[in-house]
């Protein structure tokens, strides 16, 4: 019961996503109704090209929805000024950062930009929050390293730390586990789970690590050709949602282990 009373951070109403050009509209997915609650870890999964990125781009206001509404903290996303949005939503993207000559501390501190003065000076509180973000992601020891000295796994932790320092209700990550080995994939997702729990932030990420996502997420948003469902992972397994995720000629979902198996 308590779960239902939790504050809803992000909500979509009959959302349709896709692209518009002068001549036509191409709808990628429609009728998306999701609600992300405070402190939840939510994964978006689906096959390549199904529209995960389009969904994230729409939720982060990079592109406009074709139809329907997106509400963040009960306010329409379209009504947010850029600087306001920066205070409720932070991002971890797949693109590499431009300058790897920044130190870890400097990079994480850039997360404080929406709050700092015109020249970007850090106040005492800012520095405290940056240090806290470094601690929460276990990278305090890397503080003075330059970003080019870091491994991919370390760099991903730094980017997550930066998003934490931005101090937003919602953190959205686009495929945070690409380029990482199996251990670090699990490590990053486990870290996200812990952060959602400890900080009460809502964390939404897209991923191809379906087995890990099933084990760690509070809610999964599953995108298939025909519809978008969001529910708790165990409910989705019961409903057989994962069976429709991919074409069934090569792999099949094993509901006992909660993972995909190659057909022999």
């Amino acid at each position: 019961m308590e779960q239902n009373k939790k504050h809803i951070i992000l909500k979509t109403d009959n959302l349709s996503i896709g692209y518009t050009s002068k001549a036509s509209k191409s709808v990628i997915a429609s009728n998306i109704n999701i609600a992300l609650k405070k402190g939840e870890l939510v994964g978006v999964i689906g096959a390549n090209g199904i529209g995960k990125s389009t969904l994230l781009r729409t939720l982060t206001k990079v592109q406009n929805p074709l139809n329907g509404r997106i509400l963040i903290n009960d306010k329409a996303l379209s009504k947010y000024a850029p600087i306001e949005l920066a205070k409720v939503m932070s991002l971890v993207l797949t693109e590499p950062i431009v300058s790897k000559n920044l130190s870890v501390f400097e990079l994480v501190a850039l997360g404080r930009q929406p709050y700092t003065n015109w020249v970007g000076n850090l106040s005492k509180t800012d520095i405290e929050i940056v240090n806290q973000a470094l601690n929460q992601t276990n990278i305090s020891t890397l503080k003075d390293k330059k970003c080019f000295e870091l491994s991919d796994g370390q760099l991903q932790k730094v980017m997550i730390s930066r998003a934490l320092a931005q101090d937003t209700d919602l953190i959205i990550l686009d495929e945070p586990t690409t380029h990482l080995d199996m251990y670090h994939k699990a490590y990053i997702l486990k870290l996200l789970q812990k952060l959602a729990n400890d900080t009460g932030k809502t964390i939404l990420f897209s991923s191809h690590e379906i087995d890990l996502a099933i084990q760690l997420c509070d809610t999964l948003i599953v995108m298939t050709e025909t519809h978008v469902v969001s529910d708790q992972p165990c409910n989705l397994i019961e409903k057989g949602t994962f069976d429709t995720l991919f074409p069934d000629d090569l792999i099949a979902f094993d509901s006992v282990t909660g993972s995909f198996r190659v057909k022999k």
């Binding site: 982060t60 990079v62 590499p96 300058s99 990079l107 015109w118 970007g120």
Partner: peptide, 19 residues
């Protein structure tokens, strides 16, 4: 100065920081 520092992350990150 602040803008230039933000741009070190790349334009998309800069946008997400309200720039």
């Amino acid at each position: 100065i602040k803008t230039l520092n933000t741009l070190l992350l790349g334009e998309n990150y800069a946008k997400s920081l309200g720039l």
